[in-house]
Design a binder for these strands. Structure first.
Lengths: 347, 347
DNA sequence: TATTTTTACGCAATCGGTTGCGTTTATTTT
DNA sequence: AAAATAAACGCAACCGATTGCGTAAAAATA
């Protein structure tokens, strides 16, 4: 009873007594085919339950309508928002997403890049793993002119565009805010300086210090993976400092480390923000739950994902050009919450 | 200089003066081909920079080595963990993932299912959207014997397997725990009862009540989408109840609603757990940040994702059978934290 | 050495759309 | 009405790997 063979354009052609070529064109709304014929074709297609075979199509046309997405880790609030944004954009334009994670491992990143390449993705969206020192593994893409868009953890390249926020500026503002609250010894919990996001935040932090004639102290700059544990460790570090050398504020490059640092310091009896003010980065859900609520930098992962994917797709469709655009910077705004409010705002 | 054409098995064949058929077989380690020839083939392949064309392969072999993943929302901690688990399993076995989200909309779910079908995924991993009343849209898959594995938000079907936890049992235990702490008026913040996860949790909650001769009151059962807003709304609802009718505990079907309910009640001056105890579900990161820390049900999204994907892949490889297995239940354990500890544990 | 069995490989037909180019039919121009 | 142009469609060769079946060469057996 159930037909085992797939319905093909040849079946439609036979059914309508026309050629398969016409059917193929008709299904793609090729103006070369008359309106009436097109209608007949699409009608017959739905009638017969036709489903286009993407392989045959991709094989011949060399287009997959698939985008590769490579991220360090899938399971973070930020990254899942990015993916949601990308999925929206892709879905809207008839593209699919192949998603893989490098788990912060360059070797896995390389393997995944190769897989994406083999799968002939039409374009690649990538956020680099922590320990990637170069982007030589992307050469096959550049060589074959397959467009690459970096997002968040980017790496400048002549043939591709970067989508993200201005981390330098954001960190500068957040640090300035802490200074405006009267903080003078501001610690920075930073990430791997190989990655632009952490490097830029570090630079923005230093710039703000310098501008306000505050000294930069290496003792107040901790580099870690910004995990929960790293936050807790930072707290221990702070508590072990001689009271006179303790920071009166902490600017963390992400909310997770900030929150877990706060929790440990609160447990040790420190008051926030009176004894030590806090600011994070990301506007992660936990920043609205910790008490006092965490001052942080808000930017939309969904917007980043959506923008990056849309931009890539538009490039593929020829309506814009990656090579002309070096970077797209999205808005990020400082969300001031109780964790950093030392002075009366009424002041 | 740069060759534009792809390197194909024909190039390898020509290079070695053998047939393309032999090359094809040699690349797949077909024992029909002698060891030496195989070696020559693989060597020539890497030498010439050969990359297999998956379309040609898929077109002919009718296998895509791609799994479709369809989830309600990508951006939740739980779901991104699930995806991470799936990605691991898929990557390990040489499979790829095509991921899409339904945004809790059946229509989008239907469209996505169709896309996956068109993309000829080898199998489908799906968690149903909130308002899906049936799974008729999966019929094409069942009809074509393409394996389907449900996870988390499942729907029993003769031809597929469900992977998740025992929500009934988990809710029963969590409610029993609240009762053991002396709570007598336990409210339940539940989700859409169409979905097994919420329905089962509701039933488990009721069973625990009944077993301890506590009356079930519809006034203490709120159904919502369990969002932040829903949690806040639940708090308002509680505060508006006559003091005598107020619950002395809340069991929420997820952590988000629980946490936002707690925040609002705390702001209103209620003490947790003294005035009202709390328990959530999911062990979301926020449950460890809220004060007091939230008692919740912990289960691994990664394990669910990994198990579901692995099981599907094994089925595809023929080493196990979906039809024989109705459901796979993973472990979930109660994590007791301060939000529900009314009695001295030393007691 | 003749014959059977194995082993190793080649032939050629797929899989199902796509597309350059040629051909027919309809429309416009002179 | 004849000629020129445009519109609509068909032919057939792809795209690159897979695989059933056939065959030549090598090994085993008689």
């Amino acid at each position: 009873m159930a037909e085992d063979r797939e319905v093909t354009i040849y079946d439609i052609a036979k059914y309508l007594n026309i050629s398969a070529a016409t059917v193929s064109r008709g299904l793609k709304n090729n103006p070369m085919i008359s309106k009436q014929t097109r209608k007949k074709i699409t009608d017959a297609a739905t009638m017969l339950g036709y489903q286009s075979n993407t392989f045959a199509s991709s094989l011949r046309s060399r287009q997959t309508h698939t985008l590769g997405v490579l991220v360090p880790r899938l399971n973070s609030h930020f990254m899942s928002s990015v993916l949601a944004g990308m999925e929206n954009a892709a879905n809207l334009h008839g593209y699919n997403l192949i998603i893989a994670q490098s788990l912060e491992d360059v070797d896995k990143e390389k393997r995944n890049v190769l897989t994406m390449y083999n799968k002939r993705v039409d374009g690649l969206l990538i956020s680099l793993s922590a320990n990637a020192t170069d982007i030589n593994h992307l050469e096959p893409f550049f060589k074959k002119q397959i467009p690459v868009v970096f997002f968040d953890r980017v790496h400048s390249h002549a043939d591709s565009t970067c989508v993200g926020i201005d981390n330098y500026d954001a960190a500068y503002h957040i640090t300035t805010h802490l200074i405006s609250q009267g903080c003078k010894r501001i610690m920075h919990l930073g990430g791997n300086l190989l990655r632009n996001v952490y490097n830029d935040r570090f630079k923005g932090y230093k710039k703000a210090l310098k501008e306000h004639h505050l000294p930069f102290s290496a003792a107040l700059h901790l580099v870690s993976n910004l995990s929960e544990q790293a936050g807790t460790d930072a707290a221990s570090y702070i508590l072990e400092l001689p009271p006179a050398e303790r920071p009166d504020a902490v600017f963390s490059a992400n909310d997770t480390a900030a929150v877990y640092c706060m929790l440990a310091l609160k447990a040790a009896g420190l008051r926030i923000p009176e004894d030590i003010a806090f600011a994070g980065f990301n506007n992660d859900p936990i920043s609205k739950v910790i008490e006092p609520n965490l001052t942080t930098m808000n930017y939309s992962g969904e917007a980043i994902g959506n923008t990056a994917a849309t931009y890539l797709i538009n490039h593929l469709k020829g309506s814009n050009n990656l090579h002309a655009t070096n970077a797209i910077t999205l808005r990020a705004d400082l969300v001031i919450r109780a964790s950093s409010l030392k002075k009366d705002t009424a002041g």
